[in-house]
Write a protein that binds this DNA or RNA. Sequence first.
DNA 1: CTTTGAATTATGACCAAGTACTAATAGTAC
DNA 2: GTACTATTAGTACTTGGTCATAATTCAAAG
Lengths: 180, 180
Amino acid sequence: MVRIAREKRHTLLKKRIEENPFINDEELAEEFSVSIATIRLDRMALGIPELRIRIKQRAQASLPQHHLVQVVGELVDCIVGKSALSILTATEDMVDSAHIVQSQFLYAQANSLTRAVLNLPVCITTVGNIKYKQPVTVGDKLVAKAEVIRQRDQKYYVWVTIRKKAKEVFRAKFIMESLE
Amino acid sequence: MVRIAREKRHTLLKKRIEENPFINDEELAEEFSVSIATIRLDRMALGIPELRIRIKQRAQASLPQHHLVQVVGELVDCIVGKSALSILTATEDMVDSAHIVQSQFLYAQANSLTRAVLNLPVCITTVGNIKYKQPVTVGDKLVAKAEVIRQRDQKYYVWVTIRKKAKEVFRAKFIMESLE
DNA sequence: CTTTGAATTATGACCAAGTACTAATAGTAC
DNA sequence: GTACTATTAGTACTTGGTCATAATTCAAAG
């Protein structure tokens, strides 16, 4: 049946292009043993843009992310001065060669959430203590909770725990200082 | 003098393209009030590739970064098991609204340098203590030095100090654990 | 076995953003 | 004015496509 062959080709094609966005129609045609015209019809049908557009999109996606450093992860709840929650899903680019998420990303999630919960115009992290209790890997959904424990003068003591499901995988204590 | 005008155009052109790599020769020609041919000669002289190549390079640069030990900053010296040095120049996207570099970037520099100096196939940061002593701003050249202080079984104790010129601005202590 | 209709392939015109090269012209320096 | 460089103009060719149309293949239905 031709129908099935085409549908199969469509899904394979999609996967192939996702896998290697730098492949052109000619190479695709060869790989799938069909004509270039067919590949183009397939791309149309699948709404996949041409090579140059694909490349451009990738290039643009990697451009100046100005708001990079608001909160690492998604801020889902925040009571300023009290507590806040953020969720971060670990991705491939956070891991080391052993596929374990590097501590700096957990640190970034924890510290940026701390800044969010304090919401001070100017504040710096003067002290940080972290404990990475359980290795985290790609795909893990990390829920961070920050709590403001104490305030003394310009100093704020904040505790953060990051959980993967019910399990605590990371914890941090920060002393933040507010400046004028 | 034509010479000066051209040299000036060259430096401006270079800057313009770095600023916006998605600009084509036609637009550049208009901006500089010269012909497209001139822009092309200029690009040749400066060794700047054509638009599509530039875009492609950007796209590729953002691709599979599965490096061995990625160090935040530039690794300038490394005696595995002993000590290592890296240099990071603070950029605009590291700062908060008060233009102070956020601690997570110093943490990332320190922690990634620690991984580099240990150079273990699999290792995780179990404990980290940091102190951010002096605010750092854009353009500051940060020199990080990591030293392996002690090793006990699978545990490594590493101290890192980050200096801005002679002044220590950040320090960190890590306990790293090697896994099989 | 022929017909039908979808799927595929072929073909040609066109486009963007170039390269590579040559020839002409403008501008200045001496 | 002549020399020389910088700039501009122009042509042919390339890649990796779009878009539209026509021709062909091929399996299933009548």
